[in-house]
Design a protein around this nucleic acid. Structure first.
Lengths: 165, 165
DNA sequence: AAATATATGTTGCACTGCAACAAAAAGAGC
DNA sequence: GCTCTTTTTGTTGCAGTGCAACATATATTT
């Protein structure tokens, strides 16, 4: 079930999550090797914490989910630095309307505009990449004499699993 | 120079700003009268502070721009409450990617998706309403089995005045 | 005028995000 | 190996966001 113009992915509740997390880590590793970037233990743990859920997490939630005793937990700044690294490498997105972060499972090219679908009920986040959306936004921007760079598109609503279930 | 599908407005540096602010206040007043809502002095001052610039302002910036001696300035919570009121009535938008707020000059219908164009150089924010964008986003959402509600679209880039000037 | 609803003030706190400097760890060059 | 350099992480501290909970004041209604 594939389309030419758009690809949409919403995490099904019963999907093989271990595998999708493992795949994402593997992808991150090979990508960092290819770019001579260092996926350090902390960065890896932050990514793993985000991959363990499909919900956007704030910095403090990430800290909590990284485990270890309270005294051993990294400071917020450490998390933000790891997130900065992961974002620069396209492994993590920031959900602006939530002040939170989510692991990227989409493997899109950098610069590709991504539409985030935020379920208001279960909190899960889907990604929909659409070339037509990108084109429409570009032309609308240019009609206003605007040179667009990084579009942020976030849509709140109800996902199919919550509506049907 | 008008289009059928999209209307774009980027504030020109030399536009008649007094008038655009006055108009917006007048619109806010008549709208509140029509809805039996109260445009109290504080709410009015918050709106005026936002109208005095076309840049998104944070809560503290709004407080500073509301004037008065430091001791007389309202607390942040007061600002947030006024912003909540103004947002509910479509007079103010929140720019999610900036954690800031901007007065609405667009007079669009509530629920209409608005595209915000954020100039990275001068900080001004333009609005572009586009029916085709709305349609494209809706169809992309539905392709993912998603029922969309409130879309957030923010595009960072360079406005025409900054590029040319 | 009293009762009710709405708006604002006060206090307090959890979280975001980062700057500036210090220390530790990893890589590069000899 | 060992030093030098770069990168990463730790520590401290702070400005800003956003709101909860309760108290007080101001409007509106009856």
């Amino acid at each position: 079930m594939k389309k030419t113009a758009s690809v949409a992915a919403f995490p099904a509740p019963g999907h093989d999550h271990d595998r999708c997390a493992t795949d994402a880590i593997a992808h991150a590793e090979s990508l960092c090797v290819a770019r001579a970037q260092r996926l350090t233990p902390i960065r890896r743990r932050v990514l793993e914490a985000l991959l363990a859920t499909h919900k956007p997490l704030g910095a403090y939630e990430i800290i909590e989910r990284m485990g270890g005793k309270a005294a051993e937990r990294p400071a917020p700044i450490t998390i933000y630095r790891a997130l900065e690294f992961l974002r620069e490498n396209g492994l993590v997105h920031r959900i602006e309307s939530r002040n939170a972060f989510i692991a990227c499972i989409h493997k899109h090219a950098s610069g590709d505009p991504v539409v985030f679908l935020l379920c208001e009920r279960c909190g899960a986040v889907g990604e929909a990449a659409s070339a037509s959306i990108a084109e429409t936004l570009k032309s609308a921007s240019r009609a206003a004499g605007f040179t667009p760079k990084t579009p942020v598109i976030e849509i709140a609503g109800i996902c199919s699993h919550c509506r049907e279930g």
